[in-house]
């Protein structure tokens, strides 16, 4: 990629993307993950058209119906119904909105705040660096889910608070990554040149240095997107995340726990939805890492 940088700016960006895609495309798993993810986004955005039923409508004459292909199933409820007669497929479709929303919000918050803190720590150094990094150490000293649980206990159980808690817990990774890349970039000649030519510190931080630190941050964003979905589902499962009747996948699992032996499908499908979504995003994350950072390439 070093020779690319000698071209003019717009060309460079285009070539970078082409180059990236050429690498990414060769990773079949990553492409499969991407296709699944795009399909999921379409499903989430079009839930109102796609879902056959309302996610909270209770069909009292169809309680705990098994999936359609099993004995006693009904094709109008393809994946069956839950204990109060809600259509499982529709709830899963609407649930995708929540999971994607959680991922987007958590990653955005953690990324923006984390990058700012990391930039400040890496650029200024000294006591402010020490201060920020020690606070991150403290957050990392607690097991993530436990800290998130405690934060939700303080803020009160809700989807919003769960997202805030998860964003706080994921913060340190972004701060550490940004700081490390900033510090290695700071000793480069182009930063020196920018400094000498009198670029203001803020511009130096965000315009000169930050774009060169993006590769690891993008990979981290993909990985923490999936962690956010998992953690939010775990909080929902423990009753500390989205509250019923929200069709959030983890909350659905919590509601269906008592029926695991009588009606396994109400447990199976929401979990399967979480697993496949998280797996798809992790596949994308692996592909991103291999494509963006050849040094870390694993095979």
């Amino acid at each position: 990629m070093a020779d690319v940088t000698q071209n003019s700016a717009p060309d460079t960006r285009f070539e970078l993307i082409v180059n990236f895609w050429r690498h990414f495309r060769t990773n079949r798993g990553a492409v499969a993950g991407l296709i699944f993810f795009i399909a999921l986004v379409i499903i989430a955005l079009g839930a109102w058209f796609i879902a056959p039923h309302s996610p909270i409508e209770q069909y009292r004459d169809a309680l705990l119906l098994p999936p359609a292909w099993q004995e006693g199933g009904d094709w109008s409820y393809v994946l069956g119904t839950d204990a109060v007669g809600r259509d499982l497929l529709s709830r899963l479709i609407y649930g995708s909105q929540y999971s994607l929303f959680i991922g987007v919000v958590v990653v955005s918050v953690a990324l923006v705040v984390g990058v700012c803190l990391g930039l400040v720590a890496g650029t200024f150094g000294g006591w402010i660096d020490t201060f920020i990094m020690r606070i991150m150490d403290i957050i990392l000293a607690f097991p993530s889910l436990l800290l998130a649980l405690v934060l939700v206990a303080i803020l009160g159980p809700s989807l919003l608070n769960a997202m805030i808690a998860i964003a706080v817990v994921q913060q340190p990774y972004y701060v550490r990554l940004t700081r490390a890349s900033v510090m290695s970039e700071m000793s480069r000649e182009y930063v020196m040149a920018a400094r000498v030519s009198g670029v203001r510190t803020l511009r130096l931080m965000f315009v000169t240095v930050l774009p060169n630190c993006m590769a690891p941050l993008i990979v981290q964003a993909a990985l923490s997107f999936s962690t956010a979905i998992l953690d939010a589902a775990a909080l929902g499962f423990l009753g500390m995340g989205a509250q019923p009747p929200t069709p959030e996948w983890g909350t659905m699992l919590a509601e269906s726990r008592e029926f695991i032996l009588r009606a396994p499908w109400v447990v199976t499908f929401p979990g399967l939805a979480i697993l496949t979504t998280v797996l798809a995003i992790n596949l994308i994350g692996d592909g991103l890492r291999d494509a963006l950072d050849p040094k870390l390439k694993r095979s």
Binding site: A233, A234, L253
Partner: peptide, 18 residues
Amino acid sequence: ALAGYSMPIFWWGLLLII
């Protein structure tokens, strides 16, 4: 391994119980 890494373990536990 990647599937295991992506596993919602609370669901995994319920599945094994089933």
